[in-house]
């Protein structure tokens, strides 16, 4: 995601590069906390050790830790037994994810949507041609789990699995690998749109329509519908990214906090 810079560039473009590295460190540690790889109360290595492990300067690491503290993901205690500790905030994960969404530009989100729609659309078209009842059983099982999943994390995991299964139903190992990779990028963000029950019902209906088109062997319809599944979710993410100022028209996800600020500003204050 964040291109690794060479030593020469590091010297020439120090300020820009440092900022990019702060973002990279924040994203890396934020991901690790959201995925449960770093758990509540866990002590991070000392600053110089951690900086060396991540390959960044201690100045960069301190800026990243400051940004993480402002998001409530890290607390730092001084004195004996002190250090930096992972804190998973009590509030809903959606609040934190909203801050993470700010790491994405709308251009990056649009490009991700295009890539994902291309893969899922092609997968759906091929699956319609190559499907047999056993392929549909897995998709139907995922759809049923999607409808009944309680929290946005489970919904997002099953949503992602549906698209992986669609690519597998296309009998394409390459498209399947591509979907798996896409899900690692988009999985956490999808929680932000799937926490809304009404959106979840719409999404389930859209995915049900994909299954039915694949079942009918209607390749073009299956492709269009699968692309719409992706575009609807990603359009919702872009709306959230733009925030109230950018004009969120539909109802907000019910789990999202009231009076949310465009998180990008908070982050810029924290890292600038």
């Amino acid at each position: 995601m964040n291109p690794d810079k060479t030593g020469v560039q590091r010297v020439v473009f120090t300020p820009v590069d440092t900022l990019a590295r702060v973002d990279a460190v924040v994203r890396r540690l934020g991901d690790a906390i959201d995925l449960g790889l770093l758990t509540d109360g866990e002590q991070l290595p000392g600053e110089s050790d951690l900086a060396a492990q991540l390959g960044v300067s201690t100045v960069t690491l301190r800026e990243a830790l400051m940004a993480l503290r402002q998001r409530g993901l890290v607390t730092t205690r001084r004195g004996r037994g002190g250090g930096s500790f992972v804190t998973v905030p009590d509030g809903p994960a959606e609040d934190r994810l909203l801050a993470r969404l700010a790491d994405w530009s709308t251009e990056e989100l649009r490009d991700l949507a295009d890539h994902w729609a291309a893969v899922s659309g092609a997968a759906a078209r091929l699956a319609a041609r190559r499907t047999e009842p056993a392929d549909l059983r897995q998709l139907q099982r995922s759809l049923a789990e999607l409808v009944h999943a309680e929290d946005s994390g489970a919904r997002s995991r099953v949503y992602g699995r549906f698209h992986v299964e669609l690519a597998a139903a296309a009998q394409s190992a390459r498209l399947t690998r591509e979907e798996v990779t896409l899900q690692t990028e988009v999985g956490a963000l999808l929680r932000l749109v799937l926490c809304d029950d009404r959106f979840l019902r719409d999404a389930a209906d859209r995915h049900r329509a994909v299954i039915s088109a694949v079942h009918d062997g209607a390749g073009d319809r299956a492709r269009d519908l699968a692309e719409q599944c992706v575009q609807a979710s990603m359009a919702r993410l872009v709306e959230l990214r733009l925030g109230p100022v950018g004009g969120v028209r539909g109802p907000r996800p019910k789990e999202a906090p009231d009076g949310q600020q465009p998180p990008s500003r908070e982050r810029r204050v924290g890292t600038a």
């Binding site: 009998q171 394409s172 190992a173 690998r177 798996v180």
Partner: peptide, 12 residues
Amino acid sequence: GPYVDYLCSDEY
């Protein structure tokens, strides 16, 4: 199978 094994190998 044949099937895309996305659990173990990512191979057909």
